[in-house]
Amino acid sequence: MSVLIVIPARYKSSRYPGKPLAELRGASGSAKSLIRRTWEAAQTVSGADRVVVATDDDRIREAAEAFGAEVVMTAEACANGTERCADVLARRPDLRPEIVVNLQGDSPLTPPWFVEALIDAMRAESGLQVATPVLRCDRETLEAFLEDRRAGRVGGTTAVFGARRDALYFSKEVLPYTGRSFAEGETIPVFHHVGLYAYRPAALAAYGRAAAGPLEGLEGLEQLRFLEQGLPIRCVEVEGRGRVFWELNNPVDAPRIEAALARMGLD
């Protein structure tokens, strides 16, 4: 099955304007833009046939083309990355992928095996329409989530799912509520939702035709539109393998990501 990775990137982020062009320093101190680091992460994924950056902003287009990325210009009206992925397929029918991966442009620490796990899940189950990874929180990540909430910041997203691992809900609150701290080595029942999706083209087309529902509007989480429309999302559990995963949601996240790049020796 042919796989297209789309990296949606918009300049007008309400929480962090110009975020895709924000520079992050690697292990040696060299700086690269967020969009470049995400594009370089996509290049390490096995089984992907093509990678494109999807944007509506000429500043991002110019920066991406300068480091060698293929760019598809999309509508300014796209409200989120999933709509932007759908717009890519609508504008470029020549691409014809069987699986589309949405690697959000604020996730440069995404390990390749996260993406590969989604591709494998989609290939293994022909009826699966949407899949997304979840990562069991360690103490450091859970405390970072709770710290963000105490400070009134919107940080990472958590996921809860049923016995078949189909999603029940996603939230920017820390769910499920536990009401206690956890000892070193204790299993933590909170899962970090990784901002990454795999879709069938038909699911993307249906998403583009559907209106945003009230939960999507309240949480500001694009994937809730699928759940509100009754389309299941498979949660695929992945392992960090010692890698720290963190998205650039707010300016305060930049030092966290730079520290992770330094620890992993990534330039």
Rank of each mutant, 00 (worst) to 15 (best):
V134C: 14
R200K: 15
S30L: 05
V190M: 10
G195L: 07
R180W: 04
V130T: 04
V53G: 09
I188Q: 10
R165N: 14
G47C: 12
G152E: 13
L266W: 14
P108E: 01
A64P: 09
G29Y: 10
P20M: 15
R263D: 02
E228L: 11
R256Y: 08
T55Y: 13
T38M: 04
P214A: 15
S107C: 15
E76A: 05
R25Q: 14
D87H: 00
L215V: 06
W113H: 15
A144R: 10
C85Q: 01
G230W: 13
G240P: 12
W39N: 03
V53S: 12
V71K: 04
A203Y: 11
D87T: 02
A79L: 04
R149N: 08
T38I: 05
A144D: 13
E143L: 03
R91C: 00
T187N: 00
A66K: 12
F67V: 07
G105P: 15
Y207E: 01
A63C: 13
P108K: 04
D138S: 06
Q229W: 11
G156N: 12
V134H: 08
C235R: 13
V174N: 03
P201N: 01
L118G: 07
D253Q: 04
L221T: 06
G29C: 05
S30Y: 02
T132W: 03
G179N: 09
E239N: 10
R243F: 06
V3A: 11
L89M: 01
L266E: 14
D87A: 02
G105V: 13
E228P: 12
E76R: 09
L103K: 09
M1L: 12
G47L: 11
L261W: 03
L95G: 06
I5Y: 03
R165Q: 14
R256D: 01
Y207D: 01
R180E: 11
E237F: 01
G220I: 13
R139L: 08
I119H: 07
I5E: 02
I7H: 00
I119N: 04
G68L: 05
E23A: 15
S46P: 01
R92K: 09
K172D: 02
E98W: 00
W113P: 02
D94T: 14
A183V: 06
Q223R: 00
G127C: 07
A42G: 08
R149H: 04
S28R: 15
Q223W: 03
S171I: 05
